[in-house]
Design a protein around this nucleic acid. Structure first.
Lengths: 300, 300
DNA sequence: CCCGTCTGTCAAGGTTTTGTACAGATCCTG
DNA sequence: CAGGATCTGTACAAAACCTTGACAGACGGG
């Protein structure tokens, strides 16, 4: 897994998001990389080199001069991964979520899937699922929403970003139905197609021992009720971006809530009126709410 | 073990999606294959050779240069390296797709996520992406559709299955925008939410060297057109389950088709009338159509 | 405000890599 | 035996790289 594939400069450039000219300049001026050469003289890089370039880029984004960044990146190559102390940046810990979101946003703007995946890879490498969700995914979704409302984002870009993130989150979700914990059934009401927040919520619950049954977007109330009868979950979560989609199912939710925990979530939950039913209204971020529910259920 | 199902170069070319000239060039330049010869001197290939060519193609699609891809593909022939989950296995290994589908169906009926994931894991272990798609995914989607029409499947079960499969397919799709191949832009028209077939198509194209830009379900025509302007793909694919969703965008598709390849796919393509435009109508399964398009584009 | 340094970018001119094409001879199958 | 499929060898052109050298904007110090 360590060494391996030999990338030519073009591919390294694409994966690292640094132009070939600059890569050569860094090599010449700071001796950042020492690629092997093909018989014909072409530079061949390893995956370690890729990491080093990414590290250098990150340091530059943090405000260091190129020379300093190169020194740091070169040193880090040997020593056991230090804390990556970001000098004077965000209050964040080892993970500069702010910078990551910015890079992610740029990748989405350009429909650059590899770059976006790379950012997520880096985030996953240093963050727990909880941190990933609350510091990157949730803010990123908010960003997307804001830019969308301001008209800065096209539908195509929004879809592109959603599908990319959905793939990664569902990847993390693999096996979330396994185990012996209490079951939670997750769904969005009819008309609602924003399921990313719900997936994030599912992951946060999973990290606390729940078993997840995920129905996803655009699920009719009767189907949810039917699934509840089959699955017999301890918790049902319905998420929507607008309260208008939640209100019509109020009675059925209230009915369900007589035998089990029922909650509404998402931006739409804020304006949802549970009346005198036992339906919980979750307005905080997924991780916080998952934590709250875990406590309520006497779970870790 | 290594059955010499003597394939001639034409047959190998068709199955691997690589032109005969290129196969000979790879043999000469990188010693990728060492076919036996017929008494008259014709090259005879084994199924192992086929796998090796496919592996090489995949590495190229990942952005590696031909020489490096060949080195990796040759090395993989001996020891199973990391990452070759889809191609490394026994080439002829019979995958009992029928039984797998039955188990998958039962798992879905019971909302048993772990069981369903296990079935998919097994399939992935022995099948190539192509085989997985054409022998498992596509028939499974058809099954779902049929049972849905007969009312044997609840909405909840359909959603459950879709999200599960979507997660796995998008997992396989990771990095499908990488590399230097021609770009293909994939989307569903407004109102269409069945994107699984389209994802499968994207994977099949990917296996043949294309770079994929995926917009997914429910994308307005103007957004598709806008994205085309940004991305400048060589191919645009629009997929829908019903022709009613495709017909309204006929004019825009015809317009797009004047400068690049445009195709409609999905069940709805069957009833789509391209008129006198150059819009291609893809009615066969994703793998077959991807193969056809690859040939049309002179791709490997 | 001027000057030297740092950095990212570009251009010119030449080489390597790689997919594709062609020509003429040979092989295979109905 | 005709016609399609292959074989060998050579050639090409586009894309990607290489090296050297230069240059403009940003920035800190005098």
């Amino acid at each position: 897994m360590s060494e391996a594939s030999h990338l030519r400069i073009g591919e390294l450039s694409r994966r690292a998001g640094v132009s070939p000219e600059l890569l050569r300049a860094w090599e010449r001026r700071y001796d950042l990389l020492r690629p092997t050469r093909s018989p014909g003289g072409l530079r061949l890089y390893s995956l370690e080199d890729l990491e080093r370039v990414r590290l250098m880029s990150r340091h530059i984004a943090d405000g260091l001069a190129a020379r300093e960044a190169a020194a740091l990146a070169s040193r880090a190559a040997l020593g056991p991964e230090g804390g990556e102390a970001t000098a004077g940046g965000a209050p964040g810990a080892a993970l500069d979520a702010e910078a990551a979101r910015a890079r992610l946003a740029r990748a989405v703007d350009q429909f650059d899937e590899p770059a976006a995946q790379a950012v997520i890879d880096e985030l996953l490498a240093v963050a727990t699922v909880d941190a990933l969700l609350s510091e990157a995914v949730v803010p990123f979704l908010r960003d997307i929403g804001d830019r969308w409302e301001r008209g800065e984002l096209s539908v195509a870009q929004e879809h592109f970003a959603s599908n990319l993130l959905r793939g990664r989150l569902l990847g993390l979700a693999r096996g979330w139905g396994r185990g012996a914990g209490p079951r939670a059934l997750l769904a969005c009401p009819p008309g609602e197609r924003h399921d990313l927040g719900l997936i994030a919520f599912g992951l946060a619950l999973r990290a606390r021992g729940w078993r997840i049954d995920f129905l996803g977007s655009d699920t009719p109330v009767e189907s949810i009720v039917g699934a509840v009868r089959t699955v017999r979950p301890r918790l049902v979560v319905v998420s929507a971006a607008s309260a208008e989609l939640l209100t019509p199912m109020g009675p059925q939710l209230a009915e369900l809530a007589r035998e089990r925990e029922v909650a509404v979530a998402g931006a739409g939950a804020r304006d949802f009126d549970p009346g005198d039913s036992d339906v919980l209204v979750l307005t905080r971020d997924p991780v916080a709410e998952a934590e709250g529910l875990a406590g309520r259920q006497g779970l870790g």
